[in-house]
Simulated assay, not measured.
Amino acid sequence: MRKYIGLVLVILLFTSCAKEETLIPDLPVNFSAPLTDPRLSRLSTAGGAVTLTGYGVAGIIIYRRADNAYVAYDRCSTVNPEQKNAVVVDDPNLTATDQVSGAKYSMYDGSPVKAPAKTSLKQYGVTIAGNTLQVTN
């Protein structure tokens, strides 16, 4: 009997420690525009965010952090990602909300800040070359 209890405990340990994976599909993302592009005007100051459709699973968010670094995320919520619910940037631009589940994510690093979110938003690479911003994966 003790063998069975030990086996059950080992199985529970391994299943409860399994790494949660983001189930957001890998779609090619290649957005490039000059920083003077009117679509990016809100990125002129720290804390600015823009959303763009037609990229990734549910569009992308580009955010300019307080340290003047740029980050980009897929708008697809990690809660029920098969539904492809696009998160909406809140006012002020500190968080983004999945309006279906109520989950919230930090714009600073994409991490979940309100349940039921457990996994960060999918992040894309951002590079600045001269006056051009590029988002890729």
Rank of each mutant, 00 (worst) to 15 (best):
D98M: 06
P116I: 09
P116H: 04
A103T: 02
V87G: 03
P112H: 11
S106Y: 08
G110M: 14
S106T: 03
S111V: 06
T78W: 05
Y108D: 13
P116F: 03
A115V: 11
P116N: 04
T97Q: 11
Q83M: 00
T95P: 03
A117Y: 07
S101V: 14
S111M: 12
P92V: 05
V79F: 05
G110H: 14
D91V: 13
S106A: 15
L94K: 13
G102A: 11
D90G: 05
P92K: 07
E82T: 11
D91S: 13
A117I: 07
A103R: 01
A115S: 12
S101D: 09
V113S: 12
L94V: 12
E82G: 03
N80S: 13
T95R: 03
M107C: 00
E82Q: 15
T97L: 08
P116Q: 08
P112K: 09
P116S: 10
D98H: 07
A115D: 09
D109R: 05
Y108P: 03
P81L: 08
V100K: 15
A115E: 14
A103H: 03
Q99C: 01
V100Q: 14
L94F: 04
A117C: 07
M107I: 00
P81V: 04
A86C: 06
P81Q: 05
A103K: 01
T97C: 07
D98C: 11
D90K: 06
A96G: 01
G110E: 12
T95W: 02
A117F: 06
Q99V: 06
V87N: 08
D109G: 11
P112M: 06
S77R: 11
S106K: 09
A115M: 11
V100L: 15
D98T: 06
K104I: 03
S77A: 12
M107P: 04
D91H: 05
A86G: 00
K84C: 07
S111A: 13
G110N: 10
A103N: 00
Q99W: 01
P116Y: 10
S101H: 02
T95M: 04
A117N: 10
V88C: 09
N80E: 13
M107L: 14
S77P: 10
N80Y: 13
K114V: 00
A115N: 11
K84P: 07
P81C: 05
S111I: 04
P116L: 08
S77F: 09
A115C: 00
T97Y: 04
L94C: 01
T97I: 09
V89E: 01
P116A: 12
N85H: 14
V89S: 00
D98N: 09
V113W: 05
D90C: 05
P112W: 07
K84E: 15
P112L: 06
A117V: 08
V100A: 13
P92S: 02
